[in-house]
Design a binder for these strands. Structure first.
Lengths: 134, 134
DNA sequence: TATTATTGTAAGGTAAACCTAACACTTTGT
DNA sequence: ACAAAGTGTTAGGTTTACCTTACAATAATA
């Protein structure tokens, strides 16, 4: 007796994030291209896409470009914001180099709580405005 | 042609961490107790313990207390330090409540890079010494 | 348009972590 | 010392997320 689980797995979040990015950049994105970008087999992408379709986060028909739904955008942008907040904190406050900042953000974005994220965001803003006083 | 993988999975790191804690507190720890603490079946713990034994991170014989090896201590203490550094940062710098700080640390400790961790540590120290100036 | 390239999917497989049920072994308490 | 309680392992399942191989469908191009 399994019911729909509201929360996406890290994996599905990753797919959705790439799709969202393509959407932001007005890039057509097909399954094969997604597979290339994520370094994952076309077969696995195919499976993942049907999950995202059944969760109504994307629309997709074979051989057409993937499109993201309103709800998909909502969820993806949350993840994407987390990514940015983390990356920004790592770079601006901790002085981590962009690449490493991004890699760490990519992993942490899926598991950090909303509240901690907010605090990190606030702190980064605060830091930018006040670090000169130290 | 599979060779030994140097890195532990998150899961095995969790087991090792609990074993390490018992070691620090001079507590005898048997598989069944470990299962209880981690809310996992005895069967799963049994499997996990044989993996840790084969990686020479613990010593273990049925019905005896689990003991951790030198290498096990080395690896566990690294994870444990990460946990502490993160928890401390969340509490001290971000003002997160202990429980949430710990929960987030538990997840992030397995995936954050060593370098970022060090920077967080340094920053926390710096913050403690200088926040009064703001 | 015929051929080649690209794209998508189905089938079947692997590996990791978990589970329950059943059974065997060990320890404890009376 | 023996029954009850506790502990450990095995066998067999599930789920998730990958994979390869093989084939089918579509698109691009000579």
């Amino acid at each position: 007796m399994k019911t729909k689980n509201k929360n996406l797995s890290s994996g599905l979040e990753d797919y959705l994030e790439v799709i969202y990015l393509a959407h932001l950049n007005n890039k057509q994105l097909k399954g094969a291209e997604l597979a290339r970008q994520m370094n994952i087999s076309r077969a696995s992408v195919s499976e993942a896409l049907s999950k995202l379709v059944s969760k109504k986060l994307i629309n997709y028909n074979s051989y057409e470009a993937i499109s993201i739904t309103k709800e998909g955008i909502k969820q993806a942008s949350e993840i994407y914001n987390k990514h940015h907040t983390l990356e920004n904190f790592f770079e601006t406050v901790l002085g981590i180099e962009k690449n490493e900042a991004s890699e760490n953000a990519c992993k942490i974005e899926h598991i950090i709580s909303k509240n901690v994220l907010e605090k990190i965001h606030e702190f980064t803003d605060f830091w930018i405005n006040n670090k000169n006083k130290l």
